[in-house]
Each structure stands twice: as C-alpha cells, then as structure tokens.
Design a protein around this nucleic acid. Structure first.
Lengths: 108, 108
DNA sequence: AAAACGTATAAGTAATTGCTTATATATTGT
DNA sequence: ACAATATATAAGCAATTACTTATACGTTTT
C-alpha cells in the first residue's frame, strides 16, 4: 500500500511519448547534456527542460553539472516502484502468462 | 519501435490511481462483475464503467457476459507492452540495478 | 564588463482527462 | 407488457497537461 503515489508518478511520467523518448535517449547515450537532447527533438528547448524536470521529480534521472552544461543520466532505481508493483503480482503473471523471467530474457 | 502506442496506452491507463485500483481489485478477485466493483468504490457507477472501458481498450481486462451481469477478469497479456519494454532495457537495469529477476522474486 | 552560451522559469493556451448527473440500453422477473 | 436490475453512453465541467513564446538565470569567454 505504500508508495502508491510514487508508482502513479512513475507511470504518469513515462506515459507521455515525448518524455519517454527523452528518457530512452538518456538511457542509450549513457550521459547527455540537455542541449544534446534538444537537438533532434521535435519539441522546443523549454519543452525538453520541462520533461527533464518531470523525469527528475519522478526519480527517473539524475543530473551532474559541469560548467554550463548539465549532464543527465538515468537513475535505475527510479523504476523500483514499477518493478516492485509488477513483482507484487508476479505469482499471477506467472500462472497465467508463463514465466515472467523468461519473458524478460526473451525480449531483445 | 513497434508498439510504442500500445505501451503509451498501457502506461496511461495504469497511471490513474482510481483506475489502477479497479484493475487491482479485478486481479485480486479473479473475476468480478461491475456492480461488485462499484460497491466499495469512491466513485460513481458511470465512472467505474468508464474505467472499465479504458482498461478493456488497453487490453488489460477481458469481459464475459452472464445474464445481465458482465464479469471482468484481468488479461495478463495486456501487460506485454510494459514487460517487453522493461525487458528491452534489461541489460541496463541488470548492470546497474542488480538482477531484475531476483528483484521480481524478492518483492513479496 | 559585456556578449554568448546552456538551461530554467513564467505566462498563456488548446487539448485531454476524470468526474458528475441524467438518460439510454440490455436482460431478467412478475 | 411492465418493473427492476446491471451496465453503458451523453453532456457538461473543473482540473491537468504539454506545448508555445518570451524572459530570466548562471556560467564561460573575450
């Protein structure tokens, strides 16, 4: 019952495709400055900045300042609420859905 | 790249706490009629009905009509987009986050 | 100190969302 | 046929959201 608000926040934050794309790009690049994210983005710099704020507030990314750049990286623990939630019902998924572990392995 | 829309839909659908609570109650009860879900819910019958529609559209629940009741049950495959997405980056989670499988096992 | 660069915030706006009350559509029982 | 039950849809509304342009803030370079 605890952490239901954090889970809500993580889900809401990842639910927006533009913001999720930002998250995935940070994930792929490892560490990237906001400018790098704005380039090749469909939306404006402020929009990216707002998405970064949302991702940070949800605990999904962390930042590191270096000069006038701010480098963002994924904070894997931010996904805990989501993974815990799935894990909480794993028995159910397992019973009806085969083995969740195998599924996780097979994809990709 | 494929199924990004389905993932968005699943995330959006689960992001609302009221709707997620409906989903979890269906999950716990196994199979339950809409009336059963309305009782003990904070929101009105139409609100529940709208949430059920959203859950069905996202592929997260299935229904079975029996007389004037409609029984809802969870459709575990509806979570595929979410699980696949997590699985797609599993290498990353694993590296930085320990073992996702173990996490899934350990939580409850 | 001034200009340039990287990022964040402010203010405004159209679109979406989650609810409500009222009403419609099934299905069953009398 | 009629009333009762179970569910869905319609219409309207306040709150939220994701964007935009304009501006402020912080850091570096000259």
């Amino acid at each position: 019952m605890a952490g239901t608000m954090q889970l809500t926040n993580v889900l809401k934050t990842l639910a927006d495709p533009t913001r999720r794309a930002v998250f995935e790009r940070i994930l792929q690049e490892g560490e990237v400055a906001a400018t790098g994210l704005v380039r090749g983005s469909k939306v404006s710099q402020p929009a990216v900045s707002q998405h970064l704020r949302a991702l940070r507030d949800a605990g999904l990314v962390a930042e590191r300042r270096e000069g006038r750049h701010i480098h963002y990286r994924v904070a894997p623990k931010g996904l805990s609420p989501l993974i815990d939630w799935l894990g909480h019902y794993q028995t159910f998924w397992q019973e009806r859905f085969e083995n969740l572990e195998r599924l996780l392995k097979e994809s990709e």
